[in-house]
Design a protein around this nucleic acid. Structure first.
Lengths: 202, 202
DNA sequence: GTCTATACGATGATAGAC
DNA sequence: GTCTATCATCGTATAGAC
């Protein structure tokens, strides 16, 4: 059940979260697993592969979680609420992994970077599609879909950077707060820019 | 005007932003300044001091910027609008430094860490005070002040992680969008949690 | 102020015994 | 699968000449 490979992965998640990917050495990971550093290489061919493994699992689970959340919702507003709620809950429940996945992308080689960013883009597109549907149907006020999706996602993702499990609020409470905040923001006006851009560079 | 010490600082900002603090070596910084790495130590006693210098300047300028913005505003709502606007503009204009200041705190020793975090807390308290005044005066709906301030600040700070100066929108346009989003969120209801917490741990 | 040269530890990774 | 032993490299930082 709990093989050494899984132990290594979990210890790496803890250390990457706490100290950062570059500041964590293979020796430290090995120490956390009570084995010698050479043994790590039996399970993972290198440090970056370990990081990639963590990120891929996280992104896959994140996407699955969103799909499951959306499956239970009907209509644009309910879907958006479900999407935000699932996103926040996932990011708070799996705080360490999501933090790593969004802050250690620079640790990846160009090829591996592309692998993860592609998944992230797929995920973002689901939100952008929902926003677009909501605007078209009049449920949400207008605005730039791309900017809106970034704002919403980074807002909720950032929750994982300050959330403390032992704090005053539960995961569900914070999810509810964020869900309402986002829906209010989407419904309110003023999101579209009045007049032509002052100094845009399309 | 542009002494070598300032050049080193600017090159370090570029590299810390691009590759991260731990992934950047003194040699690389020296190469970017067209000097040898030993010469860096004439200006800075070590790598961490360089990081600290960058962060202190950034935090000091950030606070000054907020104070200047608030000086021109009267009333709670206008003040909150000014605060958000200044915060966003500063973070987008000085994208690299603010990104470093908020993502490389782990590169600091405990003492230096405390130095920067104290400044950050002072800054956050200004927002929390505004939120509190707004709620007390009835301008804003209720809600947990701490959570609200984190949400607002991380939302706007995160703008610096996706903003591209050559993109479709200007700094001012994005600031306006965020300003309205935050004010709408603060005015809208639902921020207070109905009933007693489900599983809070005060 | 900048250079060359170097000390010295830590790092990622490999070879080969068990 | 895990170990010991080792390698080559690179990191920060210092000493001392110019």
């Amino acid at each position: 059940m709990s093989s050494m490979k899984e132990t290594i992965k979990q210890v790496a998640i803890d250390l990457f979260f706490q100290k950062g990917y570059f500041a964590t050495s293979i020796s430290e990971i090995a120490r956390g697993c009570d084995i010698r550093k050479a043994s790590i290489y039996y399970h993972y061919s290198g440090k970056e592969v370990l990081l990639l493994d963590i990120m891929q699992t996280t992104m896959q689970d994140l996407l699955s979680s969103l799909q499951a959340g959306l499956a239970r919702a009907a209509g644009v507003e309910a879907s958006m609420r479900a999407a935000v709620r699932t996103h926040v809950v996932f990011h708070l429940r799996r705080q360490k992994e999501t933090f790593i996945a969004s802050s250690e992308l620079r640790g990846l080689s160009p090829e591996n970077f592309k692998l993860i960013v592609t998944k992230r883009d797929d995920y973002e597109r689901i939100f952008q599609s929902l926003i677009g549907q909501g605007i078209d149907g009049g449920t949400f006020a207008g605005g730039d879909i791309r900017i809106l999706s970034y704002a919403i996602l980074t807002l909720c993702t950032a929750g994982a950077s300050w959330f403390r499990p032992e704090g005053r609020f539960s995961v569900e409470q914070i999810a509810e707060i964020y869900e309402n905040f986002v829906i209010n923001g989407l419904k309110a006006a003023q999101w579209s820019c009045a007049g032509p851009p002052a100094r845009a560079s399309y």
